[in-house]
Design a protein around this nucleic acid. Sequence first.
RNA 1: GCUCCCUUAGCUCAACGGAUAGAGCAGCGGCCUUCUAAGCCGUUGGUUGGAGGUUCGAAUCCUCCAGGGAGCGCCA
Length: 546
Amino acid sequence: MLKIESYLKQQIDATLQKLSFPHVTYQFDRPRLEAHGDISINVAMILAKSLKQNPREIANQIVTNLELKPETVEKVEIAGPGFINFFLSPEVLRTEIREILKQKEEYGKFFLSPSPKALVEFVSANPTGPLTVGHGRQAVLGDTIANILEWNGFTVTREYYFNNAGRQMRVLADSVRLRYLELLGETIEFPEDYYQGEYIKDIARKILETHGDSLKDSTDLTIFKETAEQEIFEDIKATLASLNIVFDSFVNELDLYEKGEVDFVIETFKSKNLAYEKDGALWFKTTEFGLEQDRVIVKSTGEPTYRLPDIAYHKYKFDRGFDLMVDIFGADHIATYPDVLAGLKALGYDTERVKVLIHQFVTLFEGKEKVKMSTRKATFITLDELVQEVGKDATRWFFLMRGMKTHLNFDLQLAKTQSDENPVYYNQYAHARICSILRNASDKGISLQDNPSLNLLKHPAEFQLMKKLMEFPRIVEKCRNEFEPQPLTQYLSEVSTAFHKFYTECRVISEEEPELTQARLKLCLATKQVLANGFTILGISAPEKM
RNA sequence: GCUCCCUUAGCUCAACGGAUAGAGCAGCGGCCUUCUAAGCCGUUGGUUGGAGGUUCGAAUCCUCCAGGGAGCGCCA
């Protein structure tokens, strides 16, 4: 909440008390229409219910009894069904500009003491092949949500979990082995459900280089598996790095077995009578936790299903003392997380601390044409190729500019065009333009004064820009509350619009008006700061030139 | 058959239960001897998929129906 809002809330609450109105929670809103002021509250409408009075009449009573300092609010109006609208005094805006310039790259950041610990788990793709475009959306979402949490006072760990103990990895290893034998001149029949990609052959080649034909008759898959895991992970990490994503921690399934976490889960379930044997398999009584059916956690082959290590993994998260654990999954995993949560409840953990985010899939378009994705055909586009073609900034922006619940149509053509059609450049251009003005000022030998009179800023475009800038902290907060970066992309576009309009209507550098020039340069600096801070959260660059 | 998500302007999408449902793109018409035209201004465009309900107020919440997506494994 903004300073001005907490001031208003304080005064309003006092007025409510004075009038002996009941204590209610009401909302601070930012009206869409300029005629409705800068801040509006709905308290009168809320009170109308319990007081059984006309909301406009209640609003009237509140307003006549409300005392506000003239340097904060210029005008208060009652409008519509009973909104109370506040028109901020320009001094509030000027104060906020000074605040932005003072706090610089920390403007919009919230600090909590002690800082709560958050774990954000995302991507978590098994190392069986290159990341897909779908992983890309998750990677960018996860990293940005981690940034948002950091800006809201959390200490964040970015974690990647992968399964390296199951069937998938065995198939991968055997795929490599077959390609290896192929390189040695053997004719082999390569199964259809094995990993087809060229990268398998590359790994096989690598093994051939280091081991020669010594593994020709080996039935042990260890070397194939370990090399494949290592090589593919190198690629995955490189792809993520090209998107500015670096993980703090990797956790794998095998470690959970070695640490005894998995056995602990089984033993606990058994001792609480939440597991039973049937058809040679071990079942977890998920129905005890309101789910439709019980689930197998150990197959009749003696091998666990993915569910069991997943539960153990989440237990391991809790044991490290995180206050908040965010899981990000694609829509295909929507049915699996309730089992994990049930498992955690069974172990006695508070699942309120786990926040599961589900994002919808990405469909690639080339203009109007849907790009068909097929692993077998060569039409498959990897995340790596996408980033190389489109660039880091556009890739990140496109993944973030839509709510994660909507199916994302990613238009490659649009993302690649470096023109006005592309929303990324619209925003970066605003930043570059400001830098250009600042360069110009310095070329003309204009040095920035510390405290120019911001009172000279009174053009409508200036007020609009100032008002837009001061919304930034609230947007950062909103993104955190909704676990959704999208509002920030929209907000930044609005800042850019306000700036471009200001740029068109107000000449910044003017020889005749040095005072005004100083004030406007400050406004430019503040805008540059807010844009840059927003870009930092989104993980995109703030170009000085374009 | 069951569960979850979606359906808003020609297209892609916004809109904590609030005021006259907004942007971008596409379309049409304007603006560069002045700090970056990757920009700005104007204009066209809507029964918020349909039908009921809840209330001071519904795109938003509830029920039903239609269409699209994803799931419903001893795969992950």
